[in-house]
Simulated assay, not measured.
Amino acid sequence: MSRLNYDPFQAIADNNRRQILMMLSEKSLSINLLADQFDISRPAVSKHIKVLEETGFISIRQEGRERLCELNSAGFDAVREWLTYYDQFWKRKLQNLEALLEQRKKGKKGR
């Protein structure tokens, strides 16, 4: 399936989908077991699973009569890249602030 249908940030913006991801972080689960954990209809859970699959957060494999959902690290790549960018951005800003404060501190000692 194409991963272009959904923005990964929109996919994880929904609380139900984040809960599904948290459950799958512990172990692979069938769609039926996942659906049993929610107070929403099975079709609604299936739609959430479809969004997560199309954005690459999860993959689904057939095992006997069950369809098992499991986390897929590829789906997290865009989120990881975005977070890494801003993590580095803020580190640079804090390093610049630290250097400025150190420079001012040295300037006051020299007086």
Rank of each mutant, 00 (worst) to 15 (best):
I49Q: 01
D7R: 12
E54C: 04
D39E: 13
D7E: 13
E26I: 14
I58Q: 01
V51Q: 00
I49W: 04
R17G: 01
M1D: 09
F9Y: 14
E53V: 03
I12G: 09
A44S: 15
D14V: 11
R61F: 11
Q10A: 11
G64W: 04
P43L: 02
I60S: 00
I58K: 01
K27A: 13
Q37K: 15
R67V: 00
P43Q: 09
K47P: 00
Q62C: 01
E63K: 09
A44Y: 08
S2W: 05
D14M: 04
N16E: 11
S30I: 01
L68C: 02
M1P: 08
I40Y: 09
Y6R: 06
T55F: 02
L33S: 12
V51N: 00
F9G: 12
D36V: 03
F9Q: 11
N15C: 08
H48T: 01
F38N: 03
I58F: 06
A11D: 00
K27Q: 14
E63Y: 04
Y6S: 04
L34I: 15
Y6D: 03
S46M: 05
L29P: 00
P43Y: 04
L24Q: 07
F38D: 02
R67N: 09
E53P: 01
I49E: 01
R67I: 00
E26H: 13
R3I: 11
S2V: 08
L4T: 15
K50Q: 13
I49S: 01
R18A: 04
D7P: 08
D39N: 14
K50D: 06
I58R: 07
I49C: 06
S59T: 12
S30C: 03
S28K: 12
V51D: 00
Q10F: 15
D39V: 05
G56P: 11
I58C: 04
K47S: 12
N15G: 04
L24G: 05
I20W: 04
M22K: 14
A11Y: 06
S2F: 12
L33T: 07
N32V: 07
L68Q: 07
L4N: 15
S25V: 11
V45P: 01
M22L: 15
